[in-house]
Amino acid sequence: MSGRAERALLVADDLRKSFGATPALDGASMEVDAGEVVAVMGPSGSGKSTLLHCLAGIVPPDSGRVCYDGREVSRMGDAERSALRRSQFGFVFQFGQLVPELTCLENVALPLRLERTRRRVAERRAAEWLERLEVGDVAAKRPGEVSGGQGQRVAVARALVTAPKVIFADEPTGALDSRGGERVMRLLTAAARETRAAVVLVTHEARVAAYSDREVVVRDGRTRDLARAAS
């Protein structure tokens, strides 16, 4: 256990988090190695999303530790966590993640521009990623003008454009039909494996989780790491 934890890129240890009186996480622990795809599964309300938010440094846990690459995320200040998310992580959410006023190309270029990359450079890289995710043709369109599947692929491109070490995907296929969902998952995992990015994939769908290398099950705010338990 400890041997793995030392090698792991991202480690969560005994996280607890409550919103008001309701506990969302009640002792959750997991590790993510560099380049692996981990599915976080569990019924709705089990705390999967909160676990993802804590791992990604979006929400600080009430107690417990989150370490990324040897640095303790749970102790960082807001600005530092923000910078970490910007430079090391990528995000794909279920919906509503693209800025409606920007074109798809500008949306993808946005994380680079937040890192102060020059606009022309940022947009060229964004265009490459759109091509790789098979949505090169929607570059000039606004998110409201493309289909749900195309929008999600644009979002995946946006998550990948900064060459992140970890991609956090929270129900990335939740709003799509099976076929669109499969396509997004196929492209997401292929691109992640190609760039050696780890993926933390929160989903309640087994078929989506099947794209992972292993799964972590969350139930009532606690994790059950099956593969680890078995080995």
């Binding site: 087994a206 989780a209 099947a210 799964e215 099950v217 099956l226 593969a227 078995a230």
Partner: peptide, 11 residues
């Protein structure tokens, strides 16, 4: 749980 892990492995 172990059945589930087995199912997922196959999936």
């Amino acid at each position: 749980d172990s059945q589930r892990a087995e199912h997922l492995r196959l999936m």
